[in-house]
Amino acid sequence: MRCAVLDDDKAQTELVAKLLADAGHNCEVFHQGRTLINRLRQDTFDLLIIDWNMPGMSGIEVLETVRQGQHSNLPILMITSRADDEDVVKGLAAGADDYIVKPLNSVIFMARVDAVLRRAQLNRPQKTAASWGAYSFDVPTETVTVHGEAVKLTAKELALAMMLFENMSRPLSRSYLLESIWGQSPEAETRTLDAHVSRIRSKLNLRAENGFRVLPVYSYGYRLEPTNAVGLAEPIEDAA
């Protein structure tokens, strides 16, 4: 998972970043709230971990800004030295998914991170099959059935299509998609992503009349948008 950590205490951010990295997460550190907000306009994260007491834009202000924007459903964990019940209630009411009082206990912190991600359904098992409207995905055979007709995809095309469908209506940044699908591969560049999006749009006939369309998000990335009630239904899936 891609995590963003906001804290002006460098020792604290180093500890949090190490704990997350040891657990297999990618972590980006921020020391100013405004810098994080600007970054969120350009990139996608799976989890925000923010401190309350920040110079300039406070953690609560960052939290409220995120909840009012396009990342309103993004999991957010607040870590702070403010331990009063009134502060805990205020943080949760502002939109934090969980609240941890410093100093951090490493084991409890990671347990809370895992719990927040589970609740956001980001730590789900890999699917072998899933369906949205007229689109049925078969992962082992790298095949998608559209209105009963099988369409063969490459492994990367299938992974990209699944990610877009699983994150329906959520804007996904170019760097997030490249990192998630291609990892650190030298082929992971913008033209590669654009070409794959174009191919799955064509192969899967992602048009309004079929219930879904891929939309570019200016200076950001892509979003798969449902165009009728079919796309709003829960996916039918078989977990491995």
Rank of each mutant, 00 (worst) to 15 (best):
V197I: 15
S180C: 01
K90Q: 12
K203F: 14
R213M: 10
T143W: 02
V29M: 01
A17Y: 03
G56N: 06
T80V: 08
M110I: 11
M162V: 01
Y99W: 11
A21T: 14
D84Y: 06
E237A: 11
A130W: 08
L48Q: 12
V89I: 15
A83F: 11
D238H: 09
E64W: 08
A150E: 15
V151W: 09
L215T: 03
I79A: 11
F137K: 03
M162E: 04
G59D: 09
C3W: 09
R174N: 13
S106E: 15
R223T: 15
L215V: 05
A93G: 06
G91V: 12
P55R: 07
L158V: 05
L104D: 02
K203V: 14
E237M: 07
R201V: 08
R124M: 08
G95E: 05
M163H: 12
R67W: 09
K127H: 04
S72V: 08
S169P: 02
E179V: 05
G24N: 13
M110F: 04
K127F: 05
L232K: 12
E86I: 09
P75K: 00
A229V: 13
G59K: 02
E179A: 10
Q126H: 10
H71C: 04
A239G: 00
V101P: 00
V89T: 15
F30Q: 00
L48M: 13
N73A: 12
N53I: 06
T154R: 08
V230W: 14
